[in-house]
Design a protein around this nucleic acid. Structure first.
Lengths: 311, 311
DNA sequence: GATCCGTACAACCGATGGTTGTGCCCTAGG
DNA sequence: CCTAGGGCACAACCATCGGTTGTACGGATC
């Protein structure tokens, strides 16, 4: 289907005549006639009844019209998503299941008029470079990579510590526990597909392993959360970490268990990073929203790598 | 923008390679390369970074991707809206401000998975013909036209009596009234733009005029509800009828008044009409929804033309 | 450094979609 | 009833676009 033909269809509806639509589109009436004929042939229905003084929509035309308008709207938004200058707010995060995703959903509910685009870059180095270049407006990351301070023109604020919970199947050795300590996890296999080696996310789990002697397998391709949940549910020897905030589409009858981890509770620290001089108006709105909804650190004992920036 | 190019873009993303996308689309790799180059030129951004073994999305490409997928989804729905056989449920009503609109919004909330299209045909004669031909699946109408019984293959059920309220500006003579009787309306000008002469809707108001001696001006073009509300708010000599169910975008500071009408309350009777043999699965769902949410007739005295079909 | 894999460029060609010119049909008006 | 005019469709023509084949180029791997 041709978007130009759809645009022509809408123009004819709005003007009521092929001729006026042609003038509006700066083409000839015959070209409009051809485009509409082509669209009608493609859809295999008649969209207009041609009368002696103009056109009237058929029933099919009436049904098609709102979809046509929607199509043009979406096309416009698609183009706008990459136009430099006045494009939607573009935010990076480590994964779609991370707590940052929940924060952005909340922001979208609070400000539905603000257009958003979410991207997922390789690591914080890439993200910081993208923030500095203006390719993205903000990123949710754990700062910083060990030994590398943030550039001076990048500002950051710690917005959320994401507590990790253990997710097990019903046959797992710890399935019946109300809560587990980190020490109890030693010796159990914990599977974290989707974590890419060389990223600060992987560094986080490396530190967790080093400090508490856990066994974390981050290798293997990521087939999505459905496959992950299926495997965890069916494999007694495997568990995984999952954010307490993550709202999953819970597979029925799998008997999955979420178990809090204590002494200490590992938290993944998300900071919002942005460029000091970024002029995007929605960025200020996002920062205001995040500072308003910031969760106060709870009193429980938590753990994060030593290299994360203090709150 | 070309939808074929967008489809190609998504195919390249999904396969990770120009070549595989080409195979999927049954064109050559060079054609894919051209399409992507054209799309990138049109958007004036680079969508992929070309590597030695395939492609990776740029940041702009990542931001564009969800919009591209959405565009293809909407395009598919647009085509599906006119495909005979498995198209969305197509329902006719007399006006977008009528109570039928509220009923359909409620149905959509209850069954968001059911695709709907709303059309507005000329009158009940046209609507019944469209129902019989299968061009539409159902219509909300006041049945029947005086002296014309419904065809035998058309079934109907009275679903909602829409009580009319008076809508006035703050300077109207009746603006301060808690309620008004029909008799009190005699002599006041009531303006109802958008009612087309020759329809059963016009017949309803003709009857109302004849029975109670009202002054209803149905002439004049309909510039939409915004213009109507503006005029009513600013013109002390004019009022209009409006459904008690209508949820308007209430213009702030206009001081508009909704005043119930009594002794009797004129109601516009909506029936759902459908073809006995219509096989659309969503039609049964709609009928079940309407019978479940049907409002029991309240005890107040109401009026409707004598020619409407009994409940 | 040779090979392989994957994309880009060039040349060619048919299809597509635009224009101009013209015909037909329906409505309005005398 | 006939005519004039407004509006859409068809035909012919032509430029452009988008596809194919053939080939070059560049990066990764062994």
């Amino acid at each position: 289907m041709d978007l130009a033909a759809v645009r022509t269809f809408v123009a004819v509806v709005d003007t009521g005549q092929f001729q006026d639509a042609a003038a509006e589109l700066s083409i000839t009436q015959q070209a409009v006639s051809k485009r509409i004929a082509g669209l009608e042939k493609h859809l295999a229905v008649r969209l207009f009844t041609r009368t002696a003084r103009g056109t009237r929509l058929t029933i099919d035309g009436q049904a098609f019209l709102p979809h046509a308008r929607e199509l043009l709207r979406v096309a416009e938004r698609a183009v706008a998503s990459v136009v430099p200058g006045r494009r939607p707010l573009r935010v990076d995060m480590i994964a779609s299941r991370s707590a940052a995703s929940g924060l952005m959903r909340g922001f979208h509910r609070a400000h539905p008029e603000i257009e958003l685009d979410v991207v997922m870059l390789f690591d914080i180095e890439t993200a910081v470079a993208a923030v500095r270049s203006g390719a993205i407006d903000a990123t949710f990351r754990a700062v910083a990579v060990p030994g590398r301070p943030l550039p001076e023109d990048i500002e950051s604020v710690r917005v959320l510590d994401e507590p990790l919970q253990l997710l097990t199947g019903p046959a797992h050795a710890l399935a019946a526990a109300r809560s587990v300590t980190v020490a109890q996890l030693a010796g159990h296999r914990i599977w974290m597909p989707g974590i890419v080696p060389g990223t600060e996310w992987a560094a986080y789990y490396d530190d967790l392993v080093a400090e508490f002697g856990l066994t974390i397998e981050a290798t293997g391709p990521n087939f999505g959360s459905d496959a992950l949940l299926d495997t965890i549910a069916d494999t007694p020897a495997l568990a995984t970490f999952m954010s307490e905030h993550t709202r999953l589409v819970w597979p029925a009858g799998h008997g999955l268990r979420r178990i809090p981890v204590t002494d200490p509770t590992p938290v993944y620290p998300h900071s919002l990073l942005w460029h000091r001089d970024n002029p995007h108006p929605a960025l200020a709105t996002l920062r205001a929203y995040l500072s308003a909804t910031a969760t106060s650190p709870d009193a429980t004992v938590t753990w994060a790598p030593s290299w994360v920036v203090a709150r």
